[in-house]
Amino acid sequence: MTGIEETLGRRTKENEDLFFVKAVPVTQAGNYTIVRRRRLSGLTDSAGTEILIPIYDGIEFLDDGMAFVTVGTEGALFRLPSGKRLTEFRYSKAGYENGLLVLFSSDGTRSYFNPDNDCCICSGYDRVSSRPNALGFRWAMRGRCFDYISDNGGRKVSLPTVTMAYDCDEGLFGLGEFGTVKCFTDDGTEDFLKLRRIVIENGGHLSLQNIDLAIEHIIDVYGNILNPQ
């Protein structure tokens, strides 16, 4: 059992022992009220039903029906109104970046969370695309390298030689180290024929964009970038 789990266990026991001390409402947001008993916070709904018992040091409401709950300096994500804990207590801060929920760890790494399926998309990246493509993949950047991550379960397509990735609905495209664009299958294998087919279907020239980084590359059937960079 971790230190935080021990603390929560002890506080839960103390909370049961203090049933006669009423929790005091502190803040109200929407249908929820933060209550406090002996400096520890909990959460009730509008009917007064307890969602989180008052054993936490801080509660912060987030969009998408979630709350960031802290014990000491470590925080975790909770789903409301069920009160279900979605992550470990290991994050220092929660916030939004390009519309994505980001959990910051004390070591500086970030984890991106998908509120639609309560899954962590990925962690350890500097930046993640603000929108998935039609195949459910979004690019994730670490240093100068890119991977594609699936929104459904966080499966990673690792592309170690790719130095730019694109928001393209038709496939996973990456700029290779020799300056030409390649198309990849969802197991990370290069597929020259698929690139050819997609470009031909688009009239011989395909515009690939990385919307967040404001980059547009127009390629031919061989993956050559035709527009000046």
């Binding site: 300056g179 009239g203 020239h205 127009i218 061989y222 050559n224 970038i225 035709l226 527009n227 000046p228």
Partner: peptide, 25 residues
């Protein structure tokens, strides 16, 4: 074999033909 344009020729294309790549072939 397919003959592909070399990088210098691609550069000459955007320099002297213009933005032909904005239109379908």
């Amino acid at each position: 074999e397919f003959i592909m344009p070399s990088q210098p020729m691609i550069a000459a294309g955007s320099e002297f033909i213009g933005n032909y790549y904005r239109l379908p072939v």
